[in-house]
Structures are given as C-alpha cells and as structure tokens.
Write a protein that binds this DNA or RNA. Structure first.
Lengths: 150, 150
DNA sequence: ACCCACATTGACGTTAACGTAAACGTCAAC
DNA sequence: GTTGACGTTTACGTTAACGTCAATGTGGGT
C-alpha cells in the first residue's frame, strides 16, 4: 500500500473526551459547540458532514465531531461554508496520481498564502488595539484612576 | 486641552500616496480597493463612513480612505459590518470622562481577547496546512516528481 | 395508556451584504 | 448637440446561513 498521507484533523475548542469510539447525538454536539441542531443538519445538507444513521436518527462519530469543530474554526476565521467545503473535500479526493498530488500541493500553497495574509491583517489589528489599550491605560493612570489591573 | 489619545489608523493594503491633502472620488477608491461604488455607498448608509459632499457628489479625504481600508481589513478577518461599526464608533466617542475611558479600556481588552482567540485559530489552521504541504511534497519527491520549488 | 424528551423532514421567514436596474443630473470632448 | 464617462437616488432582487414553525415518529418512565 502507498503510504497514507494523513487527513486534516486538529483540536476543536472542546476536546476533552479522547475516546475515538464514542458516538454523539445531534443535541450533544449542538450543546458542546454552542450551536443548534438545525445548524448541524444544515451543514449536512450542504455536504460538510455525513453522519451514520440508525433508522432516521443521526449518529456522529469522533471524526464527525472533529470535522464539525474544524468547520466552526474556519467560520471564526471568516471563511464561507463553500470555502470550507472546498478545503474539506480537497483532502478526501484521490491521492493516487502524481498530477492530483501536484494539484493538492498547489492549492494548499494558495490557501496558506491566504492564511498568511489574514495573519498579517490580524497582527496589524492586534497591534493597533494593544496600542490603544496602552494609551488609554496611561491616560487613566495619569488621572489617578486605576486601570483594572493590579 | 486634554492630551489627545490618538485615533485608530493604520495601513490599508494600498497605501502608497502619503498625501494627507488628497481627495478621492468614489470610483477611484472603488478601483483602488477592488470593490464597487455601490459597496462604498452602502457603507455610508450603514454609518461607517461620512465623506464630504460637493453638491451631491461625494468627496473622500485621506482619512476616509484609511477608514475604508480599515473596514475591509476587518471584513477579511471575519467581522460583520455591525461589529466593525461598533469598533470604529468606539474611538470617536467622548474621551473626557474617566468612566468613559474605563469603558473604552474594558472594551479594547475584550476585543483584544477576541483577536487573540482568532490568532490561535489561525495559527492552528496554518500549522495544519503547512503540515499537509510538507507531506504531499515529500510524497511527490519520493515519486521522483518535482514539487514546484527549485 | 399517557406523557415527555428527543429525533425527523419539509417549508417558509429572516438578516446581512451587497447586486442590479431605472431614471436622472453634469461636465468635457467631439 | 449629443455622446460618453462619471456622479446621484430609489427600489427591488439575490445569496448565504441559518431561524422558526408544523407535523410526525420513537423510546423510556410512571
């Protein structure tokens, strides 16, 4: 077999129960990630997750849960669901051919560039607000008021 | 007068002409930032920018241009226009009272926390994709194909 | 047997962030 | 004097990402 390359997977916000066998109900995941069941079903309609079914009821695996966390992280970073789907799909396609690997590499690099642009934006934003914080704190100190820090 | 605290201002993407006296037409700014005039007018309707007028025609100052760049950067980071407006307004309110300064400080800190959360998300995202890039590049190299780098 | 919490599938409603088209004014160029 | 590039307002259309019912099923207590 050709060496498996890995699948995109990382830590979501709530990642305590490291049991890969566990299954989750939709309400459970909704609570955990502070979203509604409607949202989760919507993501499924959009093809972002495909839980198993027992009859009609959806059963979510640990992998599904991880995927969901990944999706939400993408959202926090300002990506649309369509973009997130593209990225998720990207790593599920056929990796056997060299041309496909090349394409995957190309798109990864493009995406990394995008992410690094975002990071520059973010760093600039943070720097500005840190500056504001300093100035305001200094002004408050000068006026003899305390700044909320000890 | 009470020491001016500064106003939020930073570099947008296109920031070559450092002439603070220049004025810009709406089409000019639209081209420069790669958005439509409709978008700029929409931002005005939403109270995000308030250009001067000569009759009906809008005239944008260097400050307006900077503001616009700031708005777009906020958008790239995934903030809604409502959030961006809040942040912009934040720095235009009355800074004379101690209680207002305290409030400003509090909200700055909250926002910084949010931004730092975003940064952690972003770093995790970047790390993952870098990892993917490495793996795929390695696999390609193993197969004797070149990776697009020299 | 009945209730309740949880699940399901439609289907229509809503909000944000613009797009798009209509109808019009203005000024310089040909 | 009309064409064309720019500007304007008003207003309806659109897409994404869900919210909010309604109608129904299902398994577990009491």
């Amino acid at each position: 077999m050709t060496g498996r390359i890995m699948t995109v997977a990382a830590s979501a916000v709530p990642s305590e129960p490291r049991d890969p066998q566990r299954i989750y109900s939709i309400a459970e995941l909704a609570r955990e990630f502070a979203i509604t069941a409607r949202t989760i079903r919507f993501y499924e309609d959009e093809g972002l997750i495909k839980p198993k079914r027992q009859g009609l009821t959806r059963l979510y695996s640990a992998g599904d849960r991880t995927r969901l966390g990944w999706i939400l992280r993408g959202k926090r970073l300002g990506f649309t669901l369509a973009e997130i789907k593209e990225l998720l799909d990207l790593y599920q396609v056929d990796r056997t051919g060299v041309s496909q690997l090349r394409e995957l590499l190309r798109r990864s690099r493009l995406h990394i560039e995008d992410l690094e642009h975002k990071r520059r934006d973010l760093d600039a934003h943070i720097a500005e607000f840190r500056d504001v914080e300093l100035q305001v704190a200094a002004e408050l100190a000068k006026r003899g008021a305390d700044t909320g820090h000890d």
